[in-house]
Amino acid sequence: MRVGLFIPCYVDQFYPQVAIATMELLEKLGCEVVYPAAQTCCGQPMANSGFESYAAGCNANFIKQFRGFDYVVCPSGSCVLHVKEHLHDADESTASVIRNTVYELTEFLTDILKVEQLNASFPFKVGLHVSCHGQRMLHLASMSERMLPPFSKALSLLHKVAGIELIDPVRADECCGFGGTFCVTEEAVSVAMGQSRVEEHAANDVEYITGGDMSCLMHLEGILKRQRSNIKVIHLAQILNAQ
């Protein structure tokens, strides 16, 4: 199984360890993983700012980089969602193939690889931050607003990790306030939302906050560091890959 590794631009620059963990994890599980090195960004920052019309060049490059794989896998629900909903090109048939074969990491593990066992250990107290795009739009977990049976792809994987102690916050799926450019254009609200999330996890006395989207975690990390908190953020891929 040939997997194209799609790494969000800011992860490439600021969180290489998340990309490495994702890569190693997929390799451990038997995938042939290729990272197309000329990838840049999915174009979401422009589209969510109202400039989807400027994304043509970005889309063309994305398609050039990711054509021909069995699957495209990415450790971010938000970036995957953007590709699924908005990747279009003059070469629409390739765009459509990619839209249908792009997977967020945890759903790829549960739905395609059908992982039953993980050789991972993470003996810490952990709070899960559920990222909105993955949850509400990619349906990676049930949602507190919907009256449907509960499930969570992330939790089903985390439960396979030895030694981990998971503690749920009360508002289990409230947005952290990152929101792309929202985090600077609506700085005051963004930070207030992030502080609420951090407060709940801190009250649970967790050592780590984890999640499937590094963007949310980057925002929470910024707040935690400013508060000189001991709580650290860690991407799900790093926990699932931890020995």
């Binding site: 909105c132 795009h133 607003e145 947005c175 929202f182 254009t185 609506e186």
Partner: peptide, 8 residues
């Protein structure tokens, strides 16, 4: 723009 597009 007064939204994170969280979808709730």
């Amino acid at each position: 723009f007064a939204s994170t597009l969280c979808g709730s």
